[in-house]
Design a protein around this nucleic acid. Structure first.
Lengths: 198, 198
DNA sequence: GTCTATAGCCAGATAGAC
DNA sequence: GTCTATCTGGCTATAGAC
């Protein structure tokens, strides 16, 4: 059996992920949780608090994925292969998550600031240091580490941030999209490694 | 002198781009246009119509950019260099545009369908055919053309779709971000070409 | 065409019974 | 803890004077 509080959080997650903060309706969340509106306010003071809980939970799931690439003792190439495959696996399971987080960060500047100073904020410095060390040692090409990092995120995340756009432009079905993502799990890493190896 | 109707469209563009459809307030648009709410309804029947005008104008500006890479008689490499540089120049001038379009496509499935069947819808087939021809001729590697296309979009668009996230994660200022984008105008093309050339 | 004033509705939030 | 009923405020939209 699942508690009412959890029911609400699950329902709120679904609705907020689908419609964003501004588009979400408390009634819709109540319906999805099969309770009434009053209960939402019993467990969470107001819409903002409920949203905060959902957002922080979403970000809390994503942060470890990001940190996996930033920290850790593996070699660069290994790390890249590991991250890209894991990240795609993860977002296939949580398809609304990337677009939700990015949308709300863009729309709520105040919220973004709070999020950026959060404890669990991923710190890319170790990964950048690692890249710089390899560059200095001459084991990889002289490419701006921040560009490499940005490329990794862009190639991994973009299809999940803009799924409707991607499916529409490439003129593909949901099934073809999934097959494409499966193929990307190795393809992306190959390309990034190709772009930095000597 | 600029007409009231245009004033409204400019103001609506700014507000919708900032806050999205659900988050935008008619009052805010009126304020930004330095008129009153009644005028909005005089020129555009309701919020949806006003939004449609803004969205179609936005998409109408982006579509030619996309078509530039799809059609045209240039060689593959030349086309890629040309597109990536042009696209980044374009979105630097229209920073809210990519995230706006993608957000609304994600949030309004009905709207997405209408947009996908629009006349001006970009058709990637010529570009895919071109890639397939080169692959058959053995002049580029055997890579799924749709993945190549997706990579081009991902690398070009992602930083502008998720600017807050990118600046936060890379821990960079607006100025550093702009410098990074300037560098990307050639860097992205190099990487994509590297990934397909023999 | 442009304004003020207001209608009408809908969403978030609360009161209070059980 | 859970519900029904209701309040309150804010937002879209309109009426009507000028």
């Amino acid at each position: 059996m699942i508690s009412t509080e959890e029911q609400i959080l699950v329902a709120a997650k679904n609705v907020f992920h689908r419609s964003g903060y501004a588009g979400a309706r408390m009634q819709e969340i109540a319906d999805e949780a099969a309770i009434n509106k009053a209960m939402l306010h019993y467990y969470y003071k107001n819409k903002q608090q409920l949203f905060r809980a959902v957002f922080m939970q979403a970000f809390g799931k994503l942060a470890p994925q990001l940190n996996a690439i930033f920290s850790g003792t593996e070699g660069i190439f290994e790390k890249i292969r590991w991250f890209t495959a894991d990240y795609i696996d993860f977002v296939v399971e949580n398809p609304y998550l990337p677009s939700f987080i990015i949308q709300e960060l863009n729309n709520n500047p105040d919220f973004a600031v709070e999020f950026m100073s959060h404890d669990g904020k991923p710190n890319p410095q170790p990964f950048i240091d690692q890249l710089n060390k390899e560059i200095a040692a001459g084991t990889i090409r002289q490419i701006n580490p921040k560009q490499v990092l940005l490329n990794i995120f862009a190639l991994s995340a973009f299809p999940f941030v803009a799924p409707v756009m991607v499916k529409g432009l490439l003129n593909i079905s949901e099934e073809e999209f999934e097959a494409l993502m499966e193929e990307r799990k190795t393809l992306i890493a190959d390309q990034i490694i190709d772009s930095i190896k000597i």
